[in-house]
Design a protein around this nucleic acid. Structure first.
Lengths: 146, 146
DNA sequence: CCAAATTCGTTTCATCTGTAACCATTGAAA
DNA sequence: TTTCAATGGTTACAGATGAAACGAATTTGG
C-alpha cells in the first residue's frame, strides 16, 4: 500500500503564501528603505491617505490587521507626527485619525511608487495572463466567503 | 491638483497577502488543532514526507523557509521523535533527515486532510474559475522570476 | 434608572521571527 | 601542506506578533 503524497509546490495554501511573501518582500523595500516603515505602518498610512479620516477599528477592517497591530502602527505614525488623533465628540471611546501635512506628503510620495511596482509586475505578463490573475484572485476571494 | 489615491483593496501585494493569510489561517487549523504543529513544522514534515530524506538546507529551499525556521522546526520534530538525523558520511557538516514511523504516520494522516481542504475551496468555483486560478498563479510566479 | 454586556483601544506576556554572529567542516588557491 | 573563502547548521539578540486581560465609555434589557 503506497503512501499518498502531497506535492507541496502545487499545494494552493503554500503557493499563495510563497507568492504573497515574495511580492510583499519586494514591495516592502520601497517603504522600508525610504522611510523605515513596517508593513502595518504602511497599511495604516495607505488607509488614511485613501479615506481621509478613519478610526483605528476602521483601519483594521479595511486592511485586515489585528487591532494590536493597528494600535502600534498608529502610535508610531503619531510619534512621527504623520497623523493626529482627535476625540470623537459623540463617543469618547473613539479616536478619529487624520494625516498631517507631513503624513500626506509621504503618502503622495509612496503612492506612485506603489503603482509603479504593481505595473512592473503586470507588465511582465500578457494581457491574457493579467486577466487570469484578476479573475483568479477574485475567484479565491469569493470562494473564501462561501 | 488632486492627490493620486491608491485603492488598497485592489492593490496586488495587499490582495495576495490577504488571500494567503486567510487560506493559511484556515488550513493551519488542521495541523495546529490535531498536533499542535506550527507552519514551519508542518512544512518540514510535508517536505520529508514527500521526498523521504532531505537535508535542512534542502527543506529550506523547497519550502521557501529561512534556515533558522528550518533549524527550529527540525529540532522540534526531532524532539517529538518524528524524525531522526544521521550524519552524512561524505560530508560531516550535513545531516540527513528522515521521518520515523511515527512521523510518517502523522504525515499520512495529514495529507488527505490537506487535499480535502484544497478541494473544498476549489469545489466552490466553476471550472472556468479554477482554470483562472491555476494560470493566474502561474503568471505571477513567472513574473517574479523575470 | 441600574446592572450586565459590548465596544474602542492599549498593554502585558509568551511566542515567533530574521539578522548577525558563530562553530565546525569542507573546498580551493597558492 | 597552509591558508582563506564558502557551506551546513545553531544560537543570541532584538523586534514583531497575537491572545488575553484590561480600563474606559457606551449600549442594552430589565
Amino acid at each position: 500500500m503506497d503512501t499518498e503524497i502531497l506535492e507541496l509546490e502545487m499545494f494552493l495554501p503554500y503557493r499563495l503564501n510563497r507568492l504573497a511573501d515574495a511580492v510583499s518582500r519586494e514591495f516592502s523595500k520601497i517603504y522600508r528603505d525610504r522611510h523605515g516603515l513596517t508593513r502595518p505602518e504602511w497599511r495604516a498610512l495607505a488607509g488614511l491617505g485613501q479615506h481621509g479620516t478613519m478610526t483605528a477599528t476602521a483601519i483594521g477592517e479595511q486592511s485586515a490587521m489585528h487591532k494590536t497591530k493597528v494600535s502600534r502602527a498608529v502610535a508610531e505614525l503619531e510619534r512621527r507626527k504623520w497623523l493626529v488623533r482627535t476625540q470623537d465628540p459623540a463617543d469618547r471611546r473613539v479616536e478619529n485619525l487624520t494625516l498631517t501635512k507631513k503624513g500626506e506628503s509621504v503618502y503622495r510620495e509612496l503612492v506612485p511608487m506603489a503603482k509603479a511596482y504593481e505595473q512592473t509586475l503586470l507588465a511582465r505578463m500578457s494581457a491574457r495572463e493579467r486577466n487570469d490573475v484578476a479573475s483568479g484572485i477574485r475567484a479565491i476571494e469569493a470562494a473564501l466567503l462561501k
